Amino acid sequence: MYWQKRLNRGNPDAKLEETIQEIFEENDGNYGYRRIQIALNEQGVKVNQKKIRRIMRKLGLKSVKFTRKSRKYNSYKGTVGRVAKNRIHRRFVTSVPHQKITTDTSEFKYYEQDTNGKPVIKKLYLDPFLDLFNGEILSYRISEKPNAKAVLDAQKEAIEQTADCPYRR
Rank of each mutant, 00 (worst) to 15 (best):
R9V: 06
Q49D: 00
M1L: 09
A14S: 11
D13C: 09
Y125E: 04
A158I: 02
A150C: 07
L59T: 05
K51R: 11
Y31C: 06
T102S: 12
D104E: 08
K149H: 07
R57N: 12
F133I: 09
R35Y: 14
G81C: 09
V45W: 02
N74L: 15
N74H: 13
P128S: 03
G78M: 04
N116D: 13
T94G: 11
R9D: 00
D28M: 07
P119H: 14
I23A: 07
L7G: 06
T105K: 08
T115R: 12
I20N: 10
K5P: 01
E18P: 00
Q21N: 14
K149L: 07
Q113Y: 11
Y73R: 05
P12E: 12
D13M: 08
E17Y: 01
V64C: 05
K15T: 15
V80T: 13
P12L: 15
I121L: 13
V64I: 08
T162Y: 13
I88S: 04
L138W: 12
L132H: 05
N116W: 04
P97D: 09
N147R: 09
A154I: 01
K77E: 10
N74V: 11
I55M: 03
A39M: 06
A154K: 01
R35I: 09
H98N: 14
V64L: 05
Y2F: 08
I38Q: 08
D114F: 07
L152K: 10
N27G: 10
A158S: 15
G29T: 14
K5S: 03
F133N: 08
N147V: 05
G60A: 05
E42K: 01
I88N: 04
N116Q: 13
P166I: 01
E112S: 15
D28Q: 10
